[in-house]
């Protein structure tokens, strides 16, 4: 029994499992390659991006719906953790646990409102939501510190041990990233992941087998919020400072592009995307003035080179819709009563 299942029958989930191992392997190997304080700082950034993109992958990659709210969720997690610790003396452990819960609730609320919209309008709704969050970060000055940012966030600590050493910061981020990746892998290879993909392939058939698209997509969006909340809290404890500009529209776009270019919907996508984002960040520190221009050009070239990569999911679903249109044309034929002629033709 097991031998049969271990055979090629599981190629797709086996590929996902391989990609998970690569992800986990990189989390272990990278800090061995370079372990200076600076390098560890970079790897910590990468682990945070990994969590962020693993979350985005649920909605963007698996459910096939572009979300521009991830940067806003990221920021919400960071500000929630920061404000809780700075203004209310909440212990960092508790803040790390509560920030994702808050972000998940916000994501579910936005999801309930926008989940039934067609994909481009869903994207615009998430853009609107992300922008509202971004603007609030800058405008609620008494709470957030406004454009100047929130300062004085304590380091993460548990049982009196402060996570100030770069290796400890990295360890915390990497462990959470690994747990997140394993959980994402589990979901992707189980029936929930299958059903999320199924909905993109054939909406009627997914409904007919009892998979509720609304609930599944809401789940995917909620999860993307939860992961963003974890990443945000880590970001707050890592930088010990948060400011609105980290979570702007450009970041939202960058996250989507990084994931799509690296392979949305696959287990390997988030880690490759995280490496890409980290590379951009390092590069941008040296060429700040030219960064947006170069980023834009690279991004445009990528979209022109891999149009299916960006829009593959969407195009496939567009074809589905055309099929459905054909079906309603069939229905119209059903309606347009023309009785006696056709059967003879069918018989011959």
């Amino acid at each position: 029994m097991m031998s049969r299942l271990a055979g090629p029958a599981r190629t797709m989930s086996r590929r996902a499992t391989w990609e998970l191992w690569i992800t986990l392997g990189l989390l272990v190997v990278l800090p061995m390659l370079a372990a200076t304080d600076y390098a560890l700082h970079i790897w910590t950034r990468m682990a945070i991006f990994l969590i962020l993109l693993t979350g985005l992958n649920f909605i963007q990659g698996v459910a096939g719906m572009t979300s521009l709210a991830q940067a806003g969720f990221f920021g919400l997690g960071a500000y929630a953790a920061g404000i809780a610790t700075v203004r209310h003396d909440v212990p960092p452990v508790l803040a790390l646990a509560l920030a994702p819960v808050l972000v998940t609730l916000v994501a579910l609320l936005i999801g309930v409102l926008s989940m039934r919209l067609k994909e481009i309008y869903f994207t615009m709704a998430t853009l609107g939501a992300g922008f509202v969050l971004y603007l609030l970060f800058g405008r609620m000055v008494e709470l957030t510190g406004g454009p100047n940012g929130l300062v004085g966030i304590p380091p993460f600590s548990v049982g009196g041990v402060e996570f100030t050493e770069p290796i400890m910061k990295y360890g915390l981020a990497a462990v959470l990233a690994a747990i997140g990746a394993i959980a994402a892998h589990n979901l992707l290879v189980s029936r929930t992941g299958r059903a999320l993909r199924a909905y993109g392939a054939s909406e009627p058939a997914a409904l007919a087998v009892g998979a509720s698209p609304f609930r599944l997509r809401l789940l995917a969006f909620g999860l993307s919020g939860f992961y963003a909340g974890v990443a945000g809290a880590l970001e707050a404890f890592d930088s010990r400072f948060v400011s609105p500009s980290t979570f702007d529209f450009m970041t939202a776009v960058l996250l989507v592009v990084a994931l799509v270019v690296s392979g949305a919907g696959r287990m390997i996508g988030p880690i490759l995307g995280a490496l890409l984002l980290t590379g951009i960040e390092v590069f941008a520190a040296d060429y700040a003035d030219y960064e947006p221009l170069i980023m834009g050009i690279v991004f445009l070239v990528a979209v022109q080179l891999f149009p299916r990569g960006v829009a593959g999911e969407l195009a496939a679903r567009r074809e589905d819709r055309r099929e459905r249109a054909k079906r309603s044309a069939d229905l119209a034929a059903d309606v347009a009563v023309d009785a006696p002629t056709t059967l003879k033709a069918v018989q011959r």
Binding site: T11, G200, A201, S202, D330
Partner: peptide, 11 residues
């Protein structure tokens, strides 16, 4: 379904 409705991209 009259028109084939299968889950493309899956085995």
């Amino acid at each position: 379904f009259q028109n084939l409705e299968i889950f493309t991209g899956m085995t």
